[in-house]
């Protein structure tokens, strides 16, 4: 779906409610403590809810030159967290080189994965590699049952995930005192908002730990943003208006204060800078005089930049709020 078409559709909310009208004042960043790198749109899966519209046919992959520009930023500013996402980041041929270079320059490296590739011969070595470098893993797993996960991702995908999680557990992931974090991400597979993160985490734990014998640290429940394939699904299924209405009715002014864009800067595969991964997919670059490419990185300008907002931002302010680290408010 074309970016412009997405933006036009998002402007047509029930009762013409607009996100910027809900704000007492414009939102400004307060720091750049997380550099989130989208290292490519190539992915093993083509999930129906994917806002990146990632898939095996995508060709956009972060180049070594762009990775080097990110490393230059790290050398100068030591951004505390590097959050690597995609697509499947494992498909980027420069990933291991980059993590080796970046590890001494940052406090924390997060890698977002669906774990499917790590069961394949060519990628199995990454399990040890991530453990040795202390990479924190954030694993997307749509459901805690085999039936629902396989229905969403294909036959055998749940078992693959469990098998890789078991290997990660054996290397220390999600084991007390190991310092190796293995967190899960839940996205609703349909036109509804996620339930309470605490409640979902209990169910994931009950099923995965007790039934399958695999451990994880925390579950992040994410609200699907009406962007990319998920927006297409909402429109096609006749759910767009009701979904937007649910987001708008659940608007929580308290969540605005802790929006992830206030501390995160998103870097696209081509080095473009965005306030978040959703803005990246809607081609809404950082705005208001802030530099818009990683090679022009200017911390002073970027840490005070005004955030570019749109109606898709309602997904981050609904209910308990939503971010790449899960709910903004927890019980």
């Amino acid at each position: 779906m074309q970016r412009q078409h997405q933006l036009e559709h998002l402007a047509r909310t029930p009762n013409a409610e607009q996100f910027h009208h809900k704000l007492a004042s414009p939102i400004y960043a307060r720091n750049v403590s997380i550099l989130q790198l989208n290292v490519g749109k190539r992915c093993t899966l083509s999930c129906k809810h994917c806002h990146v519209e990632a898939g095996p046919e995508r060709w956009e992959v972060m180049s070594e030159e762009t990775f080097r520009a990110c490393l230059e930023v790290q050398k100068r500013h030591s951004v505390p967290t590097l959050d690597i996402t995609g697509g499947s980041p494992e498909l980027n041929p420069n990933l291991e080189w980059f993590i080796n270079q970046a590890a001494p320059l940052t406090q924390r490296i997060i890698l977002r994965s669906n774990l499917q590739l790590l069961a394949q011969e060519d990628f199995r070595h990454l399990i040890d590699f991530f453990a040795e470098r202390g990479v924190e893993l954030v694993v997307s797993l749509p459901a805690y049952t085999q039936e629902r996960t396989d229905k969403q991702r294909g036959q055998g995908s749940f078992e693959t995930c469990v098998q890789v999680m078991r290997e990660l557990n054996q290397l220390g992931y999600a084991q007390p005192g190991s310092g190796l974090a293995l967190n899960l991400v839940h996205n609703p597979v349909g036109a509804y908002l996620p339930g309470s993160q605490t409640s979902l985490e209990q169910e994931y734990r009950r099923n995965l730990e007790h039934r399958w014998g695999v451990r994880f640290n925390r579950l992040f429940a994410l609200t699907n943003s009406p962007v990319g394939r998920y927006l297409e699904f909402l429109i096609r299924s006749g759910n767009f208006e009701q979904y937007m209405d649910s987001l708008i009715q659940s608007f929580n002014p308290g969540a605005v204060e802790d929006l992830m864009c206030r501390d995160t800067l998103s870097v696209a595969w081509d080095g473009g800078l965005y306030d978040c991964d959703f803005n990246q997919m809607l081609d809404l670059p950082v705005d208001h005089q802030a530099p818009s490419h990683i090679r022009d990185f200017d911390l002073q300008a970027l840490r005070r930049r005004r955030i570019a907002v749109g109606n898709h931002c309602f997904s981050c302010t609904a209910g308990a709020g939503s971010s790449c680290q899960g709910a903004l408010e927890t019980e």
Binding site: P188, P194, G195
Partner: peptide, 10 residues
């Protein structure tokens, strides 16, 4: 029904 879906009820 929506609440059950959101809590992962099959």
């Amino acid at each position: 029904t929506t609440k059950c879906l959101s809590l992962g009820v099959t």
